[in-house]
């Protein structure tokens, strides 16, 4: 095991990897194999790899016979795609605006304020939203009533619920997500701005012809990588804010998996829905990483 360079042996490097590999084997690869219960009629008494009844694709027939399955898939993709699109546009616009600020203190304070919600849990933020968005006593509806509007049932009406989810998700994350764009803007070669200023370009034209092209690569890269999350509508948020009256617009794949599996104990059916989600996501994530690699030589490791 000795290598040529100095007394650097290779074995310790492999030993360092052992604990992590064991943990991954148990807590990532065993559950991956455990997905076989989607093809069984799982009986918890017999255990995960026990002598279970195999039922072939019967669970999937049951899943696609459920009256709401396509609606749930549709809700998931709708909410997730809206979150992806607005979750990119808002931070980009914000980074551009923040970059134009010349007052350092103002910039600092703004950043400090807008990054903060990212670090709070959806429990706290949901608690705040439930209070503020309450149709009777909530601050939001009190303010709307000053203008003779409302009350709006942000969390209780199907026409509002998905948009409330998207808006609050953008609200939580836009500050933090703007960090990467701000960093990119800062790294753009300043001589490009000077050259364009000499050519008589104002700030609008500089933004259009220098800043945005400088951000193009990172924008496209993050767009490509977000492809993998179009089945992630955000369980933590929706689970804490939805209710049966908005299931038509707000029930998503992950909440359905939870209710089927852990509330109704239909383990195999729930695992089947989970496998469909993981399977499609696997294809999308693989494609997105492959595209990112081919287009930008982006490598995760």
């Amino acid at each position: 095991m000795f290598k040529r360079y100095g007394n650097r042996r290779e074995l310790p490097l492999h030993l360092m990897l052992v604990p992590g590999l064991v943990m991954l084997l148990i807590f990532a690869y065993v559950p991956m194999m455990g997905i076989i219960i989607a093809f069984q009629q799982f009986n918890p008494v017999k255990g995960l790899f026990g002598d279970q009844n195999w039922v072939g694709l019967a669970n999937f027939k049951t899943i696609f016979a459920m009256p709401n399955i396509w609606q749930v898939i549709g809700n998931t993709v709708f909410i997730a795609v809206m979150k992806i699109i607005l979750g990119m546009i808002v931070p980009i616009v914000f980074a551009l605006l923040l970059n134009e600020v010349k007052q350092v203190l103002f910039k600092r304070v703004t950043q400090t304020i807008i990054y903060f919600p990212y670090f709070l849990s959806w429990i706290i933020l949901s608690g705040i939203m439930i209070d503020i968005l309450s149709p009777s006593t909530g601050l939001a509806n009190v303010i709307l009533s000053w203008f003779g509007l409302g009350p709006v049932y942000f969390l209780g009406e199907n026409s509002w619920f998905p948009y409330t989810m998207v808006a609050s998700d953008v609200w939580k994350n836009f500050g933090f997500n703007s960090v990467i764009y701000l960093a990119t803007i800062t790294s753009i070669d300043t001589t490009l701005y000077e050259a364009s200023a000499v050519d008589g370009a104002g700030r609008w034209r500089q933004t259009w012809h220098v800043t945005l092209p400088g951000m193009r690569m990172i924008i496209v890269l993050l767009m490509v990588l977000s492809l993998g999350s179009i089945f992630d509508a955000g369980f933590d948020q929706i689970f804490n804010l939805y209710s049966p009256q908005v299931f038509a617009s707000g029930d998503i794949i992950d909440t359905m998996i939870y209710r089927l599996g852990l509330q109704q104990s239909q383990y195999s059916i729930s695992a089947g829905v989970g496998l469909m989600k993981s399977g499609v996501s696997f294809v999308l994530i693989t494609v997105s990483y492959y595209m990112a690699y081919r287009l930008f030589k982006y490598r995760f490791f």
Binding site: L21, P44, L48, Y258, I285, F300, F301
Partner: peptide, 27 residues
Amino acid sequence: LRMRTLYVWIFFFTMLFNGGLIPNYIL
């Protein structure tokens, strides 16, 4: 580090695919 590529794939693959809620819970 011999077998680095293999190791990296073992780690990377967990980002591409997961067993989902139910197998994790049962485990």
